[in-house]
Nucleic acid binder design. Structure first.
Lengths: 344, 344
DNA sequence: TATAAGTTTGGGAGCGCTCCCACAATTTTT
DNA sequence: AAAAATTGTGGGAGCGCTCCCAAACTTATA
């Protein structure tokens, strides 16, 4: 069943492969790195030995000689409780690692945690010499943070455009504004006029952009903005969705746009408790398109956000930056999609 | 505000530090690695320069020379959907990375994902030359997998004892059996006699052990085991908790032990729908002590599982293995705790 | 056919450390 | 006081690659 060679105890070096195939170290290196200037016969001969012995170059030696480790750092400075409840980061991580692995990069992980000294942690992260570049997955990148990031001479990409982004800041983000607008336009088109909004956590660009989309949709339809229909203190949580909806119910809305699915679902609870029907009396839409969106009763109309693609794009962008294929400001906004279900 | 030296553009080498402090490369190396044979004066002098210039040794050079990268691989071979719904892995990951960082190791991540060729993925993982050792967080380590793991000459630790573990297999796990037994004993002590069990996914040691604990508690109390009170096809999911409970209701149980909190909560739904009261008519207990356990109505009595410690222990165990402080079979069972709330 | 230009190959130097051995400085023992 | 043991320090070799330059060989051009 098993061959004599590929037994996992593979500790040959380039030199060994060179000797075995009767060429020089340099030539083997060229074959391994797919350098063009190698004759077909030589390449084939060397490849045969490489496969036979299942040779893989030593990553540390390679990193030392080339000054590039092919390791990317993933920084998720997030409090524990968020990670528990919010599948966002799990999905993102999956997207990131899958992309990294497929491009022959290894992701190393930095997670903050409640019982760790934050400043020491960031010193560790910012002084890291291992990773070639880093991906920062945080909704709350502030000016100071960005400054330290820029001071390092290594490329980075932030997931979620920061407020303090300057023209050289690299980031990937979803089209939050456009998504919100699409959702609200859909509500308008289905005849709703008193459309409320349950906003996201203040201080986040996603909240800001989604609110912006809501406003812009109303304006384009010549519906006046009524500030009483915009909740003042929501924060993406279940509880604030419920209380936000209670507030809106006092103003006889006929539709609601909740800035995420979690709040939309808890708002639905408030609507039902008030004895109103969805969507007959009040239509409701969310944002994110997570699991709970299609398991809710009725299933929720929402905006699908490509979380896993966000991770994928971040990795590809970073690697392009790393390999000099693109120049520093790598900025990408990913399209979102309106998913119409039965709640509108 | 900022000093002249610590500006993040730190690319000095050992040699540079040696020159700056008037000693040799070797001496600086000794200081950095806390080697004992350095005089106090010299050590202080060198340390001063190191701190001033914020010197950190180059990881790749160090890895090449010492043949140890201080990188550990984290393998989570899990399907996407599980990661979404189950906070277990997020918490575990947090525990692992926190422990690794604090011990100056870097965790690199391997996650399987639905749209990736599995065999290629495992080839990549098993042929990895970067990590010194690995932690496998999977409930489904089978014999073949274990064999490949053993064939590699690098240390590993599995989180969750595999069925096929042999005397040399290293793992950390929670005391599932003991926990289940504690929970069921608690039910017995509060006067329950017809105690049903909603089992976990078959094929997992955790399910097996929890069932074992249930059986053993009943036996010790001289309560005969009634097979009709043990659900045949549950699998830790919400749906199977609900349907499992429906089944048990036909046999007039006065208490139920669900193998995890998710099923316990959906079982509660079934109980309420049947018009019965918790805990008056039926007492119910779960396992895991996740968020939903204290937010359920009534709050759920359950067994607290130290997930984050599981990660921590795995990392510490692996590093001890790596540094030769302990010999290969590192096996550790972590204690669990009975948390009594209002459902019993 | 001689010469220029391109292609293929090998060898040296060097990446920044660790680890060993030899030597110097110091302390202990005789 | 000299010899032996101990502690402290420096330098060389080497980890396994990449990258550059030069040499050898091939093909195109005058």
């Amino acid at each position: 069943m098993t061959t004599d060679f590929d037994n996992g105890f593979n500790d040959l070096s380039l030199e060994d492969i060179a000797r075995l195939s009767g060429v020089s170290r340099s030539t083997v290196s060229r074959v391994v790195n797919q350098h063009p200037n190698v004759s077909d016969t030589t390449r084939r001969k060397v490849m045969e030995i490489i496969t036979r012995y299942n040779f893989k170059p030593h990553p540390a030696a390679r990193a030392l000689a080339s000054q590039r480790s092919k390791i990317i750092g993933i920084l998720i400075p997030h409090i524990v409780s968020d990670l528990f409840t919010d599948p966002f980061f799990s999905i993102l991580l999956q997207g990131i690692t899958t992309a990294a692995n497929s491009l022959n990069y290894s992701p190393i992980l930095w997670l903050t945690s409640a019982n760790v000294d934050e400043s020491a942690f960031y010193d560790q992260v910012f002084n890291d010499r291992l990773a070639d570049g880093m991906i920062v997955a945080s909704a709350t990148v502030n000016a100071t943070f960005l400054e330290r990031l820029d001071q390092r001479s290594k490329p980075y990409i932030i997931i979620g455009r920061p407020f303090t982004a300057h023209e050289k800041t690299s980031y990937v983000d979803s089209e939050n504004e456009q998504g919100a607008r699409m959702l609200v336009e859909h509500l308008i088109l289905s005849g709703r006029r008193r459309i409320g909004m349950i906003t996201g956590r203040s201080g986040l660009t996603s909240s800001h952009d989604r609110l912006q989309g809501y406003i812009s949709a109303l304006q384009h339809a010549d519906i006046p903005i009524d500030m009483r229909l915009i909740t003042p203190a929501s924060d993406y949580t279940d509880a604030s969705g419920y209380s936000g909806m209670k507030l809106l119910l006092q103003h006889r809305v006929d539709a609601v746009f909740a800035a995420n699915d979690v709040m939309a679902v808890s708002a639905m609870r408030a609507i039902k408790e008030a004895g109103l029907r969805i969507p007959e009396d009040i239509a409701i839409g969310g944002f994110d398109d997570m699991g709970l969106a299609h398991s809710s009763e009725p299933p929720l109309t929402t905006i699908h956000q490509p979380i896993s693609h966000l991770g994928d794009s971040a990795v590809r962008g970073l690697i392009d930056l790393l390999e000099g294929k693109v120049e520093p400001p790598f900025q990408q906004m990913l399209p979102v999609k309106l998913i119409v279900r039965q709640s509108t």
